[in-house]
Amino acid sequence: MIRLKDVEMEYENGTKAIKGITLTIEDGEFVFLVGPSGSGKSTIIKLLTGEVEPCAGRIMINGFSVSNISEKQIPLMRRTLGVIFQDFRLIEKKTVYDNLAFVMRAVGAPQKEIRKRIPYVLHLVDLEKKADSYPTELSGGEQQRVAIARALVNNPNTIIADEPTGNLDPERSLELMSLLVKINELGTTVVVVTHEKDLVDRFGKRVVTIDSGHVVNDSVGGYVGGHIHG
């Protein structure tokens, strides 16, 4: 479960990106986080991953209190999250398989488990045949599916995706979003930042709209607000 209570966040240069957000996401939910460019969506993601710290309010993530978490617990908290970015962030000199093995190894998974888990996850994202390819040999959509596989491979409680379809054409975007929905149906909480109205409308999921560091709407269904692109 993710819970933000009266959270505020200010960057070092004085930009106040989050101006008091209260938000709860239950286990198993699928939530779209939408809003215009610069409204603070990515900052919320960074608050969830512990990349930046709130200057006020409280954040609870899967049982960890991010506001007063100890240095030692941060890695454990991060293991409950799988993060996906717009720019994929795959390691280009490693194969698809090695990209996944790399993050499993990073959390101490034994070789036996790695060999068992990777084919399963690659099957889930329909990339079994690309295990030995390098990221540069794949299309954008395939690379993003590898990124999803990587986010899933350590079996996190929650998947967080910041504009995962930003670099993809509409068809690939739809495919990818459907994949995230499928993953959600298998039991993982999914939080997706996007500003693609059409996509959001199509799925009829919970939509939280952010503007200027505030939550301006939180409802199930379509995209609220007209001034989206920026």
């Binding site: 991953t49 993060v83 993050v103």
Partner: peptide, 9 residues
């Protein structure tokens, strides 16, 4: 990436 997925320091 290691840090993101929760590798220890």
């Amino acid at each position: 990436i290691m840090r993101m997925v929760g590798a220890t320091n």
